[in-house]
Amino acid sequence: MSIISLEGVGRTVERPDAPPLTILSSVDLEIADGDRVSVVGRSGSGKSTLLNLLGLLDRPTQGTIRFDGAEVRRLSDARLARLRGASIGFVFQQFNLLPGRTAIENVMTPLLYDRGTAFWRRERLATEMLGRVGLGERITSMPDRMSGGEQQRVAIARALVRRPRLILADEPTGALDLETGGTVMALMEEVARETGAALVTITHDPAIARRAVRHLRLDAGVISPLDDEPGPGGTSPADATAPIGAVERAPLARVAATETDEVLA
């Protein structure tokens, strides 16, 4: 079922001393439950702007966005904030953990905005989620005492603790080394699969992009498929324009296992 759909969406910004800048133009995109989408594009091509729109953090200047069938334009900011809290989880390149808070406090933060029972059960839910990302022993650690990979795993736990339907990851491996990046991606995909969440990953790393099922490319604000929309299981992108790196899946999987073992040891 469709979570969010973009129809002819554009984003233009006014500039004080220059003509308006069109960052995105006529984007058509639909994300359904359980989707695996990657978006590649050069720096400045509008990837983050697209993610802001998908995350209901920004409103389009052209076109229509529907979330769960409802026109986003008609929803109040407060309604959008609640929708965002309940349905969307963000993973950032710079982790964006709240400084001075322990891992579990970071993971509990989204639950503070839950107005149902999850707020009251926040401690248990956060503990479970940290256990799920392999940090069960480190729930009271401060982010600045953790490695980049560990911090990003805390961020993943935080993004997933409210069981969102849509996970938006902006360069999630950008601040990590190759091996750790692979581990983190594998973990995110696994947890997303367990909860049935759709995962949209923005990256300029072709190896990371290749892990998705649908591959999109942004160029100067225009979106296009990197390959023919593949069916389920069609994981091998046939793309000539963007070089796909030489990193294989197998070594990544092995690294993932190794790091997990280390954590558990």
Binding site: G55, L57, D77, A78, A81, R82, R84, G85, A86, G89, F90, N96, L98, P99, T109, P110, L112, Y113, D114, R158, R162
Partner: peptide
């Protein structure tokens, strides 16, 4: 400001 932005991305309304 960054923290507030992060909180808002996780569902904090402006009233909150």
């Amino acid at each position: 400001i960054r923290e507030i932005g992060i909180r808002r991305s996780f569902g904090a309304t402006s009233g909150r």
